[in-house]
Design a protein around this nucleic acid. Structure first.
Lengths: 100, 100
DNA sequence: TCTATATTTCGATATTACTAGAAATAACTT
DNA sequence: AAGTTATTTCTAGTAATATCGAAATATAGA
């Protein structure tokens, strides 16, 4: 509900690399993707990727789950819904008023 | 459609002050709000506000319309819809698959 | 044209973010 | 225990962003 918290989430999504990571994760569903697979797909250094991932985690947009040596990243859909809800709030009503 | 363009929009929304500006504008509908009114509401220096507004304009999230000495800021609802669409894409389908 | 109002641009400083190699940690295998 | 794989943390250099006072611009009115 807190505007600062929503701003933080949007800020983390507002970087091409992080948005690309998030996009892949959203499409990968609740199983998520291992860090290593994301790294191969985006072809960036591991330390850079790790930095971006921790940004998404700190905004609660994703969480991590370990399976032995592999760390999976998974979208927090509740959080995404919260962010979408904020942006939609009182949006469409006004837009319809405009186009009619 | 371009991911960099969406990232740019999210980046601009990802700042507490700019998000507060945008929120007020969304709720003000197609008439928008004068820069001066936003300034009074948020109580920040004019130059700082102007800087933030130009960020939102550069991301095509808002546009400006002059009425004599007063500049109105208005949300570009088409653009907002585009950003929302990107975040929703393949989101809810997976989430439903998850919760069932 | 002079003054007032509304807002932006300039300039300078401070803070934060991005990037990536190297070293460290975690967990498995032999 | 030693080695291997997966990923993070450390460190540091560079770049980008935020802030805001002062000066500049745009428009209107006297």
């Amino acid at each position: 509900m807190d505007i600062d918290s929503i701003a933080k989430a949007l800020k983390e999504l507002g970087h091409p690399t992080r948005l690309a990571i998030f996009q892949r994760l959203v499409k990968s569903g609740t199983n998520g993707l291992p860090v290593g697979v994301i790294q191969e797909q985006l072809n960036i250094p591991a330390s850079t990727l790790s930095h971006h991932i921790s940004g998404l985690v700190s905004a609660q947009l994703i969480k991590q789950r370990r399976e032995s040596r592999t760390l999976y990243c998974v979208v927090e859909y509740q959080r995404l819904k919260q962010v979408l809800g904020f942006l939609q709030d009182e949006c469409c009503a006004d837009e319809q008023a405009a186009t009619k």
